[in-house]
């Protein structure tokens, strides 16, 4: 039990550091903290969907939508910072629950394809409505009231801490068990009285709102948005690599993974910066490697190194190639 009692203070210190860096850190650290916090939220959001058996290949859809709601509500309606973020969350929630309802009983491949289509479709819409979005040329943020860089950076840190707390609360609730049952065998879980659509819509709304909120904060941070930035494949990729690298379906996995992914991206940029595309090549290889050889990610690897039985990992194989999900294969 000693690790468990140690865990809470450790996480509290991490959260405190994340909240203090925007105010007291050097510019490099402030930037690093912002990017890490942003990826932590995206990774948690992706992991929440994945834990319900929903593989998103289009997380940039939520991110981009949030960004556009943020910038448009500020530019056209004069919404202040916090109000535009509320708008972004609402938009992401609606998109998430909408996707959950559209895909209905279909999971796996169909869900992945639908998210992919949603993100590409939104990108086309953003390009084709130049009067509203600025089209391919993009749009600059022209806010009536600018909250200041510190407030924006702090907001990102706060969102990250809140996302961690939400993920922890979800893991404590009955959602957690419902998801495990749905992931293993949805038909059987239905017979046990779990109504999958309800849980799926709820988790999609929650996780969609989270990812959109990141988009909303990022647009205030960057001050500029165009369809290529908003619906960048890079967002989709990093938000799925982080939880997989860290440890899918776990609480600390997305956080560890987000830190590792930011580190990995920066390291490749420093080492191989002259090669355009090197960091995404590394991410692709990491993805293949993790699926084949490190199915429990860093978290599982760490626990094994410490000689501990991975708490949930032992009971439930994660990305393990040896396990077929019962009825999923014909």
């Amino acid at each position: 039990m000693s690790t468990r009692s140690l865990a809470i203070p450790v996480w509290a210190v991490c959260a405190l550091v994340l909240l203090l860096v925007p105010a007291y850190g050097s510019p490099t650290f402030v930037d690093l903290a912002f990017r890490t916090a942003s990826l932590i939220v995206l990774a948690i959001s992706w992991n929440l969907m994945a834990s319900a058996g929903l593989i998103s290949l289009g997380h940039s859809a939520f991110f981009g939508l949030g960004g556009y709601v943020g910038i448009l509500s500020a530019n056209l309606l004069g919404a202040p910072f916090w109000l535009s973020l509320v708008g972004a969350v609402i938009a992401g929630t609606l998109l998430g629950s909408g996707l959950a309802l559209i895909t209905g009983r279909m999971r796996g491949i169909y869900f992945a394809i639908t998210t992919l289509a949603a993100s590409e479709g939104l990108r086309v819409i953003a390009v084709m409505l130049p009067d509203l979005t600025g089209g391919a040329k993009g749009a600059y943020l022209k806010a009536a009231t600018f909250p200041g860089v510190l407030a924006i950076n702090l907001a990102m840190s706060l969102v990250a801490v809140a996302a961690c707390i939400i993920a922890w609360m979800v893991s404590r609730s009955r959602f957690h068990y419902a998801f495990r049952a749905m992931r293993a065998n949805e038909a059987a879980s239905q017979m046990l009285g779990i109504f999958p659509l309800k849980y799926r819509t709820a988790i999609m709304a929650l996780s969609g709102g989270m990812a959109s909120l990141v988009g909303g904060v990022e647009v205030w941070h960057g001050g500029y948005l165009d369809p290529a930035v908003a619906f960048d494949l890079h967002i989709t990729i990093t938000s799925q690599i982080a939880p997989i690298l860290g440890g899918i379906y776990t609480l600390s996995g997305p956080i560890l993974g987000a830190i590792a992914t930011v580190f990995l991206g920066d390291a490749t940029r420093i080492a191989l910066g002259h090669l355009q595309g090197a960091s995404l090549l590394v991410f692709g290889l990491v993805l293949v490697f993790c699926v084949l050889y490190l199915p429990q990610g860093i978290q599982g690897g760490l626990l094994r190194m410490l000689g501990k039985r991975p708490s949930e990992a032992a009971a439930e194989p994660k990305l393990s190639p040896t396990v077929a999900t019962g009825a999923a294969k014909p």
């Binding site: 796996g108 991410f283 077929a324 999923a328």
Partner: peptide
């Protein structure tokens, strides 16, 4: 014979 998630992520990673 692995779950769909492995197949999706693996081929996606290869493509990337």
């Amino acid at each position: 014979d692995a779950p769909h998630i492995n197949q999706i992520l693996l081929t996606f990673g290869i493509g990337l």
